[in-house]
Design a protein around this nucleic acid. Structure first.
Lengths: 145, 145
DNA sequence: CAGGATCCAGTAGGATACTG
DNA sequence: CAGTATCCTACTGGATCCTG
């Protein structure tokens, strides 16, 4: 019989869709940059166009772990380490250990990592242009409750 | 005395940083598009450049709830509804109710929503170009355990 | 048809303490 | 200095049932 066909086909469709998503490069990228700290670390390593603190207008430069930790004061060291590891794993940054007296570890963007800054800046640009409108829409929507 | 100064200053810095993030437009946008289904819905409403099913090469078109649910088979109706609501709230899509016999609800991208497709396609493009490299890096990293 | 309401598991991620 | 290890909470998001 075909009593459960509808549910079955739904389940099948879901499976196929999930498989599709698992293979989708865009989805993988989104999963990566969604990681809440990934983009912040990337920007920090790119010379940091967002920090209101040290006025460094220079180019992209290597950074030490503790520098990053100070710049991104809101991230726990657990997440910072985890984020750095995953970025290194993906080949977006390099991790260099210099065996000085207390070890020195520096992180730096790879070419691949730098290439990702382009699209990211695209998002940033859109955000700076349109986000205020979005926020206004939000308020308006909530107000007409 | 200044015994706890270090911890205090850390906490202060974190507070400032969190406040900064809360105000940062880019962060807000990231929070939005991280929503796991937002981008999928946006793409679906844009004419869906990613589905392997119906070969519709046409332009952006309104879509009914059930159409979306079928296309994005992997999303629960709860999340679909939630996503659609938040996008409507942000003014990225419109929701139109037509009181036919069983009600008909259609969703459509607004101009604002369409403008977001640009940056998103930027990401998509990067993903399609570089994601295989990232995956290779990942495997290499894991292999050298 | 389009969604609201409820329950529930998995996990992201923060706080804290310890180490080579 | 640059992490690792452990514990614990809160939220995300799926499944299921119900409604105008």
């Amino acid at each position: 019989m075909t009593t459960t066909t509808a549910a079955q086909r739904r389940a099948e469709a879901k499976t196929r869709f999930d498989a599709f998503l698992a293979a989708c490069p865009s989805r993988k990228l989104l999963d990566r940059i969604s990681d809440k700290w990934v983009v912040l670390v990337l920007c920090a390593l790119s010379g940091g166009p967002h920090q209101a603190e040290a006025g460094n207008g220079g180019g992209p430069h290597p950074m030490r772990y503790s520098q990053l930790a100070r710049m991104l004061a809101g991230v726990s060291q657990k997440m910072l380490t985890q984020t750095l590891r995953s970025l290194e794993r993906d080949g977006l940054i390099t991790r260099t250990v210099t065996p000085t007296v207390p070890v020195t570890v520096t992180y730096e963007l790879t070419d691949l990592g730098r290439s990702l800054l382009g699209p990211v800046r695209g998002l940033k640009s859109w955000a700076e242009t349109h986000m205020s409108t979005v926020l206004a829409n939000r308020e308006a929507y909530d107000a007409r409750a």
